[in-house]
Design a protein around this nucleic acid. Sequence first.
DNA 1: CTGAAAGCGCTAACAC
DNA 2: GTGTTAGCGCTTTCAG
Lengths: 333, 333
Amino acid sequence: MNIYDIAELAGVSIATVSRVVNDSPMVSEKTKQRVRKVMEENNYTPNVFARGLGLNSMKTVGLICPDVADAYMAKAVAYLEHNLKEYGYDCILYCSGHGYEDRQIAVSTILNKRIDALVLIGSSYADDDADSEQVEYIREAAKQVPVFLMNGYVRGDNIYCALCNDYDITFLTVSELIQSGRKRILFLSDSHSYSANQKLRGYEEALRQAGIPVDESLKLYIQNDINQVRDYLLFRSDLKMDAVFATEDGLAAGALKYAKKKGISVPESISIIGYNNSELSVCCDPELSTIDSRGERLCRIIIDSMMLLKQNKTIKQKVFANGFLVRRYTTDF
Amino acid sequence: MNIYDIAELAGVSIATVSRVVNDSPMVSEKTKQRVRKVMEENNYTPNVFARGLGLNSMKTVGLICPDVADAYMAKAVAYLEHNLKEYGYDCILYCSGHGYEDRQIAVSTILNKRIDALVLIGSSYADDDADSEQVEYIREAAKQVPVFLMNGYVRGDNIYCALCNDYDITFLTVSELIQSGRKRILFLSDSHSYSANQKLRGYEEALRQAGIPVDESLKLYIQNDINQVRDYLLFRSDLKMDAVFATEDGLAAGALKYAKKKGISVPESISIIGYNNSELSVCCDPELSTIDSRGERLCRIIIDSMMLLKQNKTIKQKVFANGFLVRRYTTDF
DNA sequence: CTGAAAGCGCTAACAC
DNA sequence: GTGTTAGCGCTTTCAG
């Protein structure tokens, strides 16, 4: 069933059918009705390829993330997909992995699909330095379609970034930790992404302002695997921390397991704070205090920006959402 | 940059360019080289729409799941996407939600994208009765493209199902529970999906074969939310179970929290078994015994089947993967 | 308000 | 081996 068949059955030309499909105002209600009826009876749906060929668009947005199996990203993908659908957009998903090359390949592959917009999920797509060369491929992509970064920042035309103010909330939280008497705060992370670096800066600044020297041995980078973290901390008995600030809930969960194994009371003798307010944080016992990094809010901002952009409105290139600490039972303030 | 430009620059016809793009053997190495060079210099990429129009295929497979935010599905999507990519296929993702209508809409929407194959992830796409009317929309879809069900079963032409033998593994596990002396085993679930029903049947059969009457009050359906489960069990002090068989790790985690809150020792006084071998199961303390439902295996089977099908080989309509119990610390056998 | 016809960029059958 | 050409199904001028 194609447009010709419908045209014939309805006794009109294909141009008219096309107009009806696109709900053009230049068709009389009568013919519209008639054509619609024929289309329904034959449950005709326009061929997206042919349409795409003409319009060079397929109402599709490309979603790239390192790995959808990660809870934070899965949530973002779910939210974006769901809400974009409401605007008639479909999503092509591409999981890029974490390597630099992989990311480039992902972007160029998905661009070939003639998507209408590109969303890069997760901070690994931005360099620490917003003007870095490493990030040229994103600027290149932005020449073709608007690019939206979720929790990453790169400066450039047609690039729009929605970010959690990781620096601020980390600064605040670590400062509170210090005020509650903690002296040896472990910074536990699994990456050197843009946002991980923001967190690190917030951590360091909080120490600095409190006059506590930054102890390099208290910055620990380790894979985000609960038991691996536990075991490693068990092994590193030299650390002697009285608090843990983790950049992922999984890391915090590992730290908690360590503390319990060692018989260190939480939060009396050690405070633990996670990040992302994931299901893990409520699964822990005691439940993890954790920072909510406003994933949904960021997605919302991205979608809204995208739609405004379609209407040729100017939108901000950088928008922040405020993260906040969810106080539960692994902190005592 | 289109095929005409390249043809002109390379001094050949568009047909030759097309042949080069498709790596046809009927082009001399020399011209191939020359054309390739021109393509690279102008970094030309064929227009997928035009190509799609001609071939009526875009090397794309449609993925539908109720919700990617769910860990089990996110993993499946990640695995499928990753491996399909290796075969040159991209993925369109559609999260359908759980309603019956939603599922139908999802399928018909994604079918319009002229996908090459459809994968339905999660057992909510299959009815308990494989021949049910409720599932007609899947058969309808299968008339257009091969349909693959991950952990669901519907009988029909061009429909291929990869399943975990939930019935068997549940039967075995509950039987073990009984042999280890448990008498009041709570069946905890959050849905009436195909697989949930298989599990229920396994549970009932195990009781039956052990001569234990099935107590309806020990079948509990509740939303998969850790604290909600804990609170509800706390509230239902009449249950007095000595074991919990949960169809989701989240439910089991909730039951564990209940037990700890009540001061019931795990696994001495109560055994708890989860399902899916998710991150939650190792986050729990003590770690959850849980059934591994072989998500990756099922995905692998689906992909392999899909590729065999492309080669017109005949493949089985129904393939099982064996689930197994991961023994950890919430069981004592 | 409606129709005719020219693309959109590519593939594939058919000539040479 | 290579070129010519007729579609693929739709959108969009341009006429009427």
